[in-house]
Amino acid sequence: MKKITLLAALVASGLAHAADPIRIGVDATYEPFAYKSADGKLVGFDIDMANALCAQMKAKCVFVEQEWKGIIPALNAKKYDAIVSSMSITEERKKAVDFTSKYYHTPSRLIARAGSVSGTPDSLKGKRVGVLKASTQEKYALKYYQPAGATVVPYNSTQQAYLDMAAGRLDATVADSVEGSTGFLKKPEGKGYAFVGPVLKDEAIFGHGAGIAVRKGDDALRNNFNKAIVDVRKNGTYKKVNDKYFAFDAYGE
């Protein structure tokens, strides 16, 4: 009897393996791209886009939540198979993972109390600038603002940085323009704050938009995602997801 159960279990696990879902890592603290709705569900542009791409690939996808700073190591530790979490494609990250082509591209900007600083590195001398740990924005702040005399303060999520902005512990924060706008500026806590200075530019740091990260050498999955991105751009699915969140085309030019 025991042997039969064991055999059944083996067969069952074998079958389950054949239909293994694609596990997708996501940091759900990044409104409107990936966050939790009031009832605790994962929602956002990244989530909808991942679902659309999976539908296009006729694959089943499950989401695995992961704090941002550990999101690449956890991919390489096989906790999930791909990262669809607004990750900018940068040269540095390419050393650790492979990327698909971009699925959207929005620039980063500096947020501060309206009229408090001009936004140039020198205007941040002696100021405290909050950033998300392990983000492109952290790299930018360390490269441009820290040498100019700003203190760069690292946070585990952008939400914590916004809490500290509202509490007055920070003078400024560097954020994705869309996420910063939805996650902070448009909320009651963001009253009196605004984007200052121009769109931040440094291709070596910010890369060429957000892509889907897969483990190095996982070309099959990467190619499938690449093809799916092209397909959803063509068949209108991308536009449908895009228009749910943005009044402009997030894909960029």
Partner: peptide, 14 residues
């Protein structure tokens, strides 16, 4: 730990 954290997230070495 914070220092280790920064290196971990900069170089993706756990």
């Amino acid at each position: 730990t914070g220092a280790a954290d920064r290196l971990y997230s900069t170089y993706y070495m756990p």
